[in-house]
Design a protein around this nucleic acid. Structure first.
Lengths: 119, 119
DNA sequence: ATTTCAGGTATACTATTTATACCTAAAGGC
DNA sequence: GCCTTTAGGTATAAATAGTATACCTGAAAT
């Protein structure tokens, strides 16, 4: 992504290497940067967590949001959903290797956010 | 952010250290993770860029979006807006120190996104 | 008998994003 | 002179995303 602008002999501008539609940063953000997605992944870092526990941990997000995000992450192979019991239905969510690979970025974001008092 | 769930003697659950409203990760994402915000910052990494040049570089984002994001970033002190000419009006946008401090995270995100072929 | 837990879904409403057109003023082509 | 292009945006409407609230099934505890 080294896009730049050049001007031809007639003063007309054109872009070299434009981000035609989402570039790598934008594509990454669409996964990790969705509302609540980063927090969700981060809260799964220590192992499997249940749906309602995630709901309790992320004060502010609705069940619908959490459900939707988890489904997106599952579809992308970042999270694994396991039914550990039916009848009284019980499921856990945990990170896959791919999901785990995003943790470093999130940890850096957390440190950055705390260092500069982002609010 | 080490929230966990505990169960009392009666089987009732309660959260310890819940993310009551946005935690550090979530707050950071609200700044850097907004749609187009990451790309915008990243395209400013090599120095001042003009409004319409940013518009051309971020194929896909509308002027309105770019305008809005730049205003948000300016309000947060991450970007500096400079009028370099009026009459034929001309402005440039550049990163402040704070803005620059986010570049490492974005670079890591770009590498992650490319490594795992996020699309 | 009522409440609590699990893991969600349904409905309605609000906020954000997108697409499209337009504005002022100056310069270039024909 | 007339039309197009450039700059840096703004206005309007339509589409998409997120929020609040209530509700569902089935089992166990009060």
């Amino acid at each position: 992504m080294k896009s730049r602008i050049e001007t031809d002999g007639y003063g007309r501008k054109k872009v070299i290497d434009a981000c035609m539609e989402p570039c790598a940063i934008e594509r990454g953000m669409r996964i990790i940067g969705g509302k609540w997605t980063g927090s969700l992944i981060y809260h799964l870092k220590d192992g499997p967590v249940r749906f309602n526990d995630l709901n309790r941990m992320l004060g502010g997000a609705t069940k619908k949001m959490i459900d939707q995000r988890l489904k997106e992450l599952e579809a992308r192979g970042m999270v694994l959903r396991t039914v550990i019991n039916d009848r009284p239905i019980a499921v856990t969510y945990e990170l896959t290797e791919l999901g785990r690979s995003a943790l470093d970025i999130l940890e850096d974001l957390r440190l950055w956010s705390e260092k500069y008092n982002i609010r």
